[in-house]
Design a protein around this nucleic acid. Structure first.
Lengths: 96, 96
DNA sequence: TCTATAGTTCCAGATTTATCGAATTATAAA
DNA sequence: TTTATAATTCGATAAATCTGGAACTATAGA
């Protein structure tokens, strides 16, 4: 069960564009970054970007917060930390 | 460039069956585990398993070593560690 | 209310994945 | 050399993913 949740997170991170977006969101920190700003920086067509963003959100890797007409994307740090924890706990056994 | 390599690793880990296989390989440690043993434990049809194994290998997450008729699958710990490092360095910024 | 801005959803085609039985390759043992 | 075991590759289908223009929704300001 949990493995499916983690796999889902990996799956959504497993696309170069989405991983770039995610990385940019992490850089943005707690206050997040507007969708439009990501679009300008990474030069991604609006609809494509929107799809990728909803993919990341579907894995609970990010959330969105509206401020007027602007939607800010913010990393879900708990999720990120749980993914890291999985790799360390479940995967990095004792050896090495 | 590096982001594509990491994304590839995430992509291959991003499938429940493959993640289960990978997890099992980590449990097996340095000496690895035979393909047939994985097949029995996880109840995966041979050809399907073989495809998943080659997917993991294509991301350099695992390697295979032959001993007679038996092929042992072994985790590439360096790759695993580099994935963890990516999440921590590139992604876990300073906040939190 | 009309207009502009910020994003999302609709739609549809192209491409990639996932699955698994059957056939095949590789190795070992009789 | 014949047979058995271990695993991969072939082949074919079904399903999911990716992409981006066009249409739409939500919000704000004039």
């Amino acid at each position: 069960m949990e493995i499916e949740i983690i796999a889902k997170a990996f799956k959504e991170l497993g696309h170069p564009t989405r991983l770039s977006i995610f990385k940019r969101l992490v850089k943005a920190g707690e206050q997040g970054i507007a969708v439009g700003a990501v679009q300008e920086e990474l030069k991604i067509p609006g609809s494509t970007l929107s799809h990728h963003i909803s993919s990341l959100a579907s894995a609970d890797l990010i959330k969105q917060r509206r401020e007027g007409r602007t939607l800010y994307c913010v990393v879900e740090y708990e999720k990120l930390l749980s993914v890291i924890a999985f790799l360390q706990d479940e995967c990095c056994a004792d050896e090495q």
